[in-house]
Write a protein that binds this DNA or RNA. Sequence first.
DNA 1: ATATAATTTTAGACAAAGCTAAAAAATAAA
DNA 2: TTTATTTTTTAGCTTTGTCTAAAATTATAT
Lengths: 217, 217
Amino acid sequence: MFSLSEENYLKAIFHLQKHSKAGVSTNALAEEMQTKASSVTDMVKKLSDKKLVVYKKYQGVYLSEAGRQTALQIVRKHRLWEVFLVEKLDFSWDEVHEVAEELEHIKSEKLISELDKFLDYPKRDPHGDPIPDAKGNFQAANKTLLSNLSKGEKGTLVGVKDTSSEFLKYLDKNDIALGKTIEVLDKEEFDGSMLIQIGDRSLRVSTMVTVNIYIKI
Amino acid sequence: MFSLSEENYLKAIFHLQKHSKAGVSTNALAEEMQTKASSVTDMVKKLSDKKLVVYKKYQGVYLSEAGRQTALQIVRKHRLWEVFLVEKLDFSWDEVHEVAEELEHIKSEKLISELDKFLDYPKRDPHGDPIPDAKGNFQAANKTLLSNLSKGEKGTLVGVKDTSSEFLKYLDKNDIALGKTIEVLDKEEFDGSMLIQIGDRSLRVSTMVTVNIYIKI
DNA sequence: ATATAATTTTAGACAAAGCTAAAAAATAAA
DNA sequence: TTTATTTTTTAGCTTTGTCTAAAATTATAT
Ligand SMILES: [Mn+2]
Ligand SMILES: [Mn+2]
Ligand SMILES: [Mn+2]
Ligand SMILES: [Mn+2]
């Protein structure tokens, strides 16, 4: 249906447009796609011709409904494959991303519906992100960043914003994992760092950490 | 490492050169790759530059040792994925080929070694073909075509030569499957057709069938 | 309001992989 | 051994997705 490159662009636009209601800028997309702005302009024109995005020169780009549905299916495949890699093949959550980045492009309806069944219809991927169903529906958890909690508040770790291998390994090393309860013992107003209680230990974490962890209260 | 197209060419050359010790001809490769002879010449030159094949103008092409190892790893991946699809995702043996044709190009050492482990190190794919190990070693079964058997001889069905969906569905419909015992009750010299005993039934099959079934005596 | 800076688009090129049509080489037939 | 046929290669073009450099547009700062 669509080329690998088109699919990756659609997914990138999908992720970027969550952060604001304005159109996704050429530069932001170039940054996300690790390419040049001029290449982005070319591709965005092509996607526009195919009615997958709405694009006006210098005004940024938006997904059309068709584009959004396509992006959602790629996200669905990406996250289902991540679950497969972690649950069945003993990958850790910091190792799955680049492989899923390739697997998400395999073209087979049956493959993905059977994989979904095989994994017992998971609702979230290893990073806590929701997995859209075959129709593109998913429930976005009501979650907040750890950085938004005040001293004394607590909640459950339900997701990570930064899914880089470095960050995930840092979390592993400190026994910070999905499902754990975190309580804010103290918050340093100066730099936003926190002393948190997690399991039976307390630990001081920087803002770099607190702005990348999602908590459900 | 190599492009999708390069990998597919290497695999095609690997399969074609099994059938004779002569170099693989441009036309044979074009037929196998569903492309034009001129495109083949271009690609073969590129593979030759990369030392994956040995090529002399008008003389056909051979895999180099590096090319053979690369091809073997692609075959390994293709067949492991086929096993996965049949064993874990309830695909039937006639549905796996085109999906495996895509999956075989996913680039991850860990993915394939973990998949191998997950599948419990299978030795053969759903069509009875051997799965090379990580070093490229595999045991070619000593098998013969059903058409080579004489009246009264019997053996076990260990593989199929034609893996087209049509042929495999024909076999399914007639309850002919890997591992079944087949006995030649009668052979018609005129057209090579056979009356065979399989399980508790006897069945007449044409040459089209007997030359596409491998038997181990 | 004008100048300066940043962003975005266009123009022109390039590499990969394919194609068609024509030329060259190898095979087969007469 | 010429001639005819088949196979293979070359030459030139196309599409996809990328790039650099220059031009156009929008945003920011005096
Ligand atoms: Mn991708
Ligand atoms: Mn994820
Ligand atoms: Mn393939
Ligand atoms: Mn097979």
